[in-house]
Design a protein around this nucleic acid. Sequence first.
DNA 1: CGCTTGACACCGT
DNA 2: AACGGTGCCAAGC
Length: 101
Amino acid sequence: MKSFTERVWEQLKLIPKGKVASYKTLSEAMNSKAYRAVGSAVKKNPYAPGVPCHRVVKNNGEIGGYSGPGGVKRKIEILKKEGVEIIKNKVDLKKYLYEFR
DNA sequence: CGCTTGACACCGT
DNA sequence: AACGGTGCCAAGC
């Protein structure tokens, strides 16, 4: 039985490099409105590259948090490396927001 | 106009 | 039960 958390990871894997998805969009992609719980799910993610939790940002483009090494700073660095420009800890959703379709 | 900050409520584990 | 984390709102400069 897949837990809500595992289902979230499935959506993360669908995100292509150079794009980011918001927790809210993620919840809608899985037919759930518990976008608040998505944040908790990502935090519990014990997998590293298998689940690109660093590609998940808040609906307003803010990076949010990162439980990995280096904290949010590290997350921003990775996104920039992917081709996503980070402005003041925020991403241009209009340009990098990935839609699950 | 653009940008920032604080607080609250809600979700799943 | 508690915790963490997100989303929207408003106001101010």
